[in-house]
Design a protein around this nucleic acid. Structure first.
Length: 424
RNA sequence: GUGGCUGUAGCUCAGUCGGCAGAGCCCCUGGUUGUGGUCCAGGUGGUCGUGGGUUCGAAUCCCAUCAGCCACCCCA
């Protein structure tokens, strides 16, 4: 068909079968998250551009080339959120939650927007399920947060997921490491592809992200960041690893793991799935003890993560749902109508049924055969037939699909008759 | 931003050497003058992604272009 309108690149329509699978996952995730003490938060999808510039950070791909940014008529620069952490911190401050006692724990399942080139498990509008816990600097919380992420995968039956953990230090110990790293990288420029050389001064840690073999081998010869940590970070990291071990969370300590966002400190982690192709990185997160303060609030330690919903679903291919099932919703009672007058009569006569079950009135004017076929497709338990004769007598044809029996039921007795079948 | 693959009916796809545009499913109608899940018969539905070129003749060959998918990059 020559379509006049098409969906935008990297966006998609989610039809009934997949919606049900999504909701199945979401219900489990909400349940798990509430058991870990999280409450849902919903924030606007648009925010001031500056919120992301300053939190996620210039020099990151997200800010430099992936944000949906536009200007309003008033000249204000707005951005469709590319991630959730900055919004949650903003909301935390804006709603005066800094004075709440204890740790504030938020979760979200929400759409994000990034102008990437789409591919399997990667969209321009995609969903993340994630958490943000603000108000505690305890390494025990780090371990609990990582365990929470793993629990979310387990809840939907994701197999073969593994955590990589690292510590990238704090403003006290990281600068010295970064200086050493820069010097080291510049001494070995010939090994580093030109496309990556620009990062050395802006964000040298990101070289660890490179999948270039030469760079990887080069960095493997450099001292791991975990050996450059200050005592505080070192102790913190040790407790995180120890607690994860006690919890039985499967993890590997990976000093080459960094995160692409600027605000992280100390604990960072990533969760990957073992699978041939597809997007193997399913989730990422870490500590951000300085972000709240940087956003104008009181010094507040915090940690969070987010999971890519689409790629997690992709990884769940032994799913309990049939993606090919009918895109039409199931009903309990299907009302076949002979003509327009019968439709009008039927709508009024069956109105009371909607208090107890799902009712579809066929207003297509097709043949009775076609209408009955649809009743079957919609998995109806009962079909009512309304035509001229029924309108005159006030008695409606009532067919029970389960046993094929058909009887006549007066309009006022319909609710009782339907209820009997529904309960049987 | 770079590379690979694919575009034919609503869906899944055939289409040989360049020679009438096809199948299955879906949908509609009828068999059953008002009744499903089985069956039978018939029917609707096409800018062969788009534009150009070669040719007596192009879905098929050539060029361009657009779209989709996949991979790199990066990320979730």
């Amino acid at each position: 068909m020559n379509l006049r309108y098409r969906r935008l690149k990297g966006t998609r329509d989610i039809l009934l079968g997949e919606v049900e699978k999504l909701r199945w996952c979401e219900e489990r995730w909400c349940e798990v998250l509430s058991r870990y003490g999280y409450g849902e938060i919903r924030t606007p999808v648009i925010e001031p551009t500056d919120l992301f510039l300053r939190s996620v950070g210039k020099g990151t791909d997200i800010v430099d080339k992936e944000m949906y940014t536009f200007e309003t008529k008033g000249g204000e620069s707005l951005t469709l959120r590319p991630e959730m952490t900055a919004s949650v911190v903003r909301a935390y401050l804006e709603n005066g939650l800094t004075r709440q006692p204890g740790t504030m724990k938020f979760y979200y399942i929400a759409p994000m927007f990034r102008h990437d080139r789409p591919q399997a498990g990667r969209y321009r509008q995609f969903h993340q399920v994630g958490v943000e816990a603000l108000g505690s600097d305890s390494p025990v919380l780090d371990a609990e947060v990582i365990q929470t992420a793993m629990a979310l995968f387990e809840a939907v039956g994701a197999k073969g997921v593994m955590v990589q953990v690292n510590s990238i230090g704090c403003p006290e110990c990281r600068p010295a490491f970064l200086e050493d790293l820069k010097v080291f990288l510049k001494d070995n420029l010939d090994v580093i592809p030109e496309s990556m050389q620009g990062r050395i001064d802006i964000n040298p840690l990101r070289l660890y992200d490179a999948k270039d073999d030469g760079v990887n081998q080069l960095l493997a010869t450099f001292k791991p960041i975990t050996e450059s940590l200050c005592q505080g970070c070192r102790d913190h990291h040790e407790v995180v690893l120890r607690t994860l071990e006690s919890l039985g969370v499967p993890f590997v300590n990976d000093p080459a793991l960094v995160r692409g966002l600027d605000y992280y400190c100390r604990t960072t982690f990533e969760i990957t799935a073992r699978s041939g192709r597809k997007q193997s990185s399913l989730a990422g997160g870490g500590r951000y003890d300085y972000l709240v303060e940087q956003c104008g609030g009181p010094a507040t330690a915090a940690i969070g993560f987010s999971i890519g919903v689409e790629r997690t679903l992709l990884h769940l291919d032994d799913k309990p749902f049939d993606a090919q099932r009918s895109p039409q919703s199931p009903v309990d009672v299907y009302v076949a109508c002979a003509d327009a007058a019968a439709q009008e009569y039927a709508l009024v006569q069956t109105d009371a049924l909607r208090a107890m079950c799902r009712v579809e009135i066929d207003t297509t004017g097709r043949s009775m055969k076609a209408q009955a076929k649809s009743a079957n497709l919609r998995q109806a338990k009962i079909m009512l037939v309304v035509g001229e004769q029924e309108m005159q007598t006030g008695v409606i044809q009532f067919k029970n699909f389960a046993n094929g029996e058909q009887k006549q039921v007066a309009g006022e007795s319909l609710p009782a008759a339907v209820q009997e079948v529904m309960e049987g």
